[in-house]
């Protein structure tokens, strides 16, 4: 970049309009005022910095995945961020039972698929509606994932596919149901496939903080247990 001369005197940028006492021209809008300041600040630049192109390969992690399938790679990376990969509904039942999490919410669109296993196990209270006035009663929430990102162990949620934002966030355990074909290998692939959706959220492990003395605590505002459930 060209070296600029010593700092110029502070510029007084006046909006390009007639003085207000004349009451002839309308006052510039806040948008016009701000953009006029930007334009005036950039006016002295002899040329502008170009926009470089770059290769996705650059940001893919050095540890290339071995000869494993996308789910195995995803599961390994999810464990690295303290998430829990599960490969069957039976494994989910075992995990929920072990944690003592018996009451929860399930996306009605997924319930038909999961109901037989839950009913066979018995003892679960699963609602297919979510009542925000009883938010703390739901110990787990089961919703559909839009995608997964293997390189980072990330679950992708969206307004289209996730039945309730709150149900995927407020219970202690969040179960995101993932299908094999939904897994992207790396971040650039997942960015290129970002859905046209007003609210896409990437969840990489359980909610966490290290604000207090840098000590890792999980389950701050969101789930303390983040499960990815693979259903075939």
């Amino acid at each position: 970049m060209a070296r600029q001369p010593a700092h110029p005197a502070r510029r007084q940028i006046k909006p390009a309009s007639a003085p207000s006492f004349l009451l002839l021209a309308p006052m510039p809008s806040p948008r016009e005022t701000l953009l006029a300041r930007v334009t005036s600040a950039l006016a002295p630049l002899p040329k502008r910095a170009p926009l470089p192109n770059w290769d996705n390969e650059l940001v893919i992690m050095r540890q290339a995945r071995g000869p494993v399938d996308a789910w195995t790679f995803f599961a390994e990376r999810l464990k690295a961020v303290n998430g829990t990969p599960l490969a069957s509904a039976a494994a989910l039942i075992a995990t929920l039972t072990q944690g003592g999490w018996k009451h929860g919410y399930c996306d009605p669109a997924l319930w038909d698929e999961l109901r037989p296993t839950f009913e066979a196990a018995g003892g679960f209270n699963v609602e297919t509606t979510f009542d925000r006035s009883r938010i703390d009663e739901y110990q787990f929430g089961i919703t559909a994932a839009t995608a997964g990102v293997a390189e980072t162990g990330t679950l992708v949620l969206s307004d289209r596919d996730t039945s309730r934002r709150l149900a995927a966030l407020s219970p202690w355990v969040h179960v995101a149901v993932l299908r094999r074909a939904q897994i992207h290998i790396d971040v650039p692939a997942a960015i290129a496939a970002l859905p046209q959706d007003p609210n896409v959220v990437w969840c990489t492990g359980p909610s966490k903080t290290a604000d207090v003395e840098g000590i890792l605590i999980e389950g701050v505002h969101g789930p303390g247990i983040q499960i990815a459930l693979l259903l075939e």
């Binding site: 980072t152 896409v200 990437w202």
Partner: peptide
Amino acid sequence: QQLTVYTEFISG
């Protein structure tokens, strides 16, 4: 971190 836990893409 590789990624922060929540990365939100909000468009409306």
